[in-house]
Design a protein around this nucleic acid. Structure first.
Lengths: 75, 75
DNA sequence: TTGTTTTATACCCTTTAAGGTATACTAATG
DNA sequence: CATTAGTATACCTTAAAGGGTATAAAACAA
């Protein structure tokens, strides 16, 4: 389990919206277990499921340059 | 099967390096079938496997804003 | 055309992600 | 302290991803 950017991104975004993991699972349509796996940095997740969650944050998974600034490209 | 950016990204990058699908599979350590699924826009792929391939291109999957310019953020 | 290389499709098998449920562990509150 | 809300961990089942192989279809060269 990594110090993953996706992990921290989801966790922080979720809290900004004032959602619990349960809320996020319901709104995105993925299982609660999946949300938890994401936030704990599991890296063998399916990208379509990840996107299902990221859509709520107006984001999608996409190829970016390695070392492309530490933050997740602007807001 | 989508008009996926990942699909076209991998395909074009691979050709730039003059690799066949077999070459890419061998160099990245994923199966040939996986490379083909990627290039055909299958969207239920595991993100760690995708990254295994993208590393060869100096890229990783990361959350980006939806509509964050159509191209894949510079070269 | 034929031959060769690359890519696409199809089948089967093994592994495992995803989800559900239940249980524990933490914060937090009162 | 106890009670609750939120999060983490564990077990089980099902569906499907990933990989291998084989075949077919393109793509390109001779």
């Amino acid at each position: 389990m990594n110090k993953n950017t996706l992990s921290s991104f989801v966790k922080s975004r979720r809290k900004i919206l004032g959602l619990t993991q349960v809320d996020l699972a319901l709104k995105s349509g993925v299982g609660l277990r999946f949300v938890r796996d994401m936030e704990q940095g599991k890296n063998s997740l399916r990208v379509d499921k990840i996107n299902q969650v990221l859509y709520l944050f107006g984001h999608v998974m996409s190829p970016v340059n390695i070392g492309g600034s530490d933050n997740v490209e602007e807001s």
